[in-house]
Amino acid sequence: MSTRVTALDTLRGVAILGTLGTNIWIFTDPDGIAGFISAAATSGPAETVLRTISNGKFLGLLSIMFGVGIAIQAASADRRGARWPGWYLWRAALLLLEGVLHYVLIFEGDVLAFYAIVSIPVAYLAVRSDRALRAWTTTAAATVHVAAMGLLTAAIIAAGGGIDGGGLPPLPDTWPDQVRMRLDHWPALRTEGLFVLPLSTLLFLAGVRLWRAGAFRPEGRALRARLMLWGLAVGVPLNFATAFAGPQWFLVDRYVCAPLVAFGLLGGITALVHRMREHPGPLRTALTAVGRTAMSCYILQNLIASALCYQWGLGLADTLGHHRPWFTIAAWITVSALLMAGAAWWVRRFDRGPIEAVWHRLYLLPQRRRVETTV
């Protein structure tokens, strides 16, 4: 596997386990997502630091990598002379279906459905000129998104309020009741889409531009250095400042500062992979395996965490939830270790993850039928 591809898989692996670092706070809270949101306003300094480490930035990194994936597929279609987006729209439809099923059956914090929606306009924009992409990224996406977060934050501060989970129900005990809750309260549970959809558009487009600019190639060292400077030297202090400023700054913290840190993580991790390409080590090998099976690991990590924490499984959130944040940390380490070990075992034997293999067959199915009908 080439260094460039390995860097992409490693980044995806870090992003997948990083999103679990945010979601695990939901799983380990006895009240689920309602308790997770409410606790953000009352948590102590140690828990605030731990929440801030993962909150938003790994979801941002995953979004950037999704945009990179679109750019790679668009370039591949161009080399083959295939129509674009063409069959990619069928891929987006499959992702939307998978996201809806994941939301209803497993986890109310699903992002796959949002990604499917955003991927369609970005797929059309991915073949535009660099100038057009820059205009869409800086003007239509970044400016609008930052302005919206600023105005909403100003309104929250003026009203003396904050973000809380008062409008969401406590988590039911049984799996059928949890499914009914997600169906009955989907407008409230999907409210984050108002922020994720424009932000994901921005980050997807940024991923396309970074791929074109060579950020993942050896000669992209200067660009990676700039990403690290802005993301780590500027983004990290701003991220912690807004995290400790109070719940009124939640939107800026999660949807503005955290994505800025994600660019620094991308630059730093890619630089590290290139530096250590001769000796990957067991940790990076496992992270790369998670990245190669990213879709399977994303869904599986939520399923495992649900089985560990919810009442229809082992119910550890009720019995050990009062030991947070240590129980939360232990749960994240346990699930992450299981995923890394399982993914490393799987990729030694198969080319694709289990869900990726099923997805690939479904993606090719209408194309094969079209060929058979033509013949």
Rank of each mutant, 00 (worst) to 15 (best):
L272F: 10
T42S: 15
P237N: 05
V290N: 03
G161V: 06
A317R: 06
L229S: 02
I70R: 01
A294I: 11
L61Y: 05
G264N: 04
T285N: 10
V375D: 01
A243M: 05
S38T: 15
A262M: 00
E98D: 11
V290D: 07
I37F: 14
S200Y: 04
D31F: 13
L320D: 00
A289H: 12
R217I: 05
R348M: 11
L227N: 03
R221M: 07
G220E: 11
G86H: 03
A222W: 06
S129F: 07
P169H: 10
R134E: 14
I33M: 13
A341P: 01
T201F: 14
E98N: 07
P218R: 14
V256K: 04
S63E: 03
I157T: 06
I64G: 04
F350Y: 15
L251H: 05
A154S: 09
R361T: 13
I333W: 04
S336W: 03
I53E: 01
Y115C: 08
G99R: 01
A15E: 02
G18N: 03
R370Y: 07
R352S: 10
V179H: 01
F114W: 08
A132D: 11
A113V: 05
G160Q: 05
A141R: 00
T48S: 12
G32R: 00
G160M: 09
G353N: 05
R226K: 15
T334D: 01
L364S: 06
D78S: 09
G313M: 11
R80V: 02
L283V: 15
H145T: 12
L152W: 05
R217A: 15
H360T: 08
G264F: 01
R91Q: 07
L365H: 12
G109C: 05
G35R: 08
L202W: 12
L101W: 04
Y310L: 12
F263L: 11
L232K: 02
Q311T: 09
S200G: 11
G353E: 04
P354S: 08
D9V: 03
I299L: 14
G268W: 09
F114C: 08
L189S: 02
R80T: 09
H323P: 00
A141C: 15
R370C: 04
N239K: 07
H322D: 13
A158M: 03
F66G: 03
L197N: 02
A337T: 14
V273W: 00
P187L: 07
L251N: 03
A39T: 06
L151P: 00
I333F: 11
T288Y: 00
Y255P: 06
A75D: 12
T139W: 15
G150C: 10
I117E: 01
W346Q: 09
A213S: 13
L105I: 13
H185N: 14
R254E: 12
D9N: 11
I304S: 01
S119P: 00
L202A: 08
V371D: 04
T22F: 15
I72Q: 08
A148T: 10
G246E: 07
V273Q: 10
Q248D: 15
L96D: 01
S336M: 04
N23A: 12
I33A: 13
A140Q: 07
P325T: 06
S54H: 10
H145K: 03
L189D: 03
T319H: 09
A140G: 11
I37A: 12
A343F: 12
P282E: 08
G81L: 02
S336T: 10
I64Q: 01
W345N: 04
S43D: 14
P280S: 11
H279K: 14
I355Q: 02
P282S: 13
G44A: 12
A289D: 12
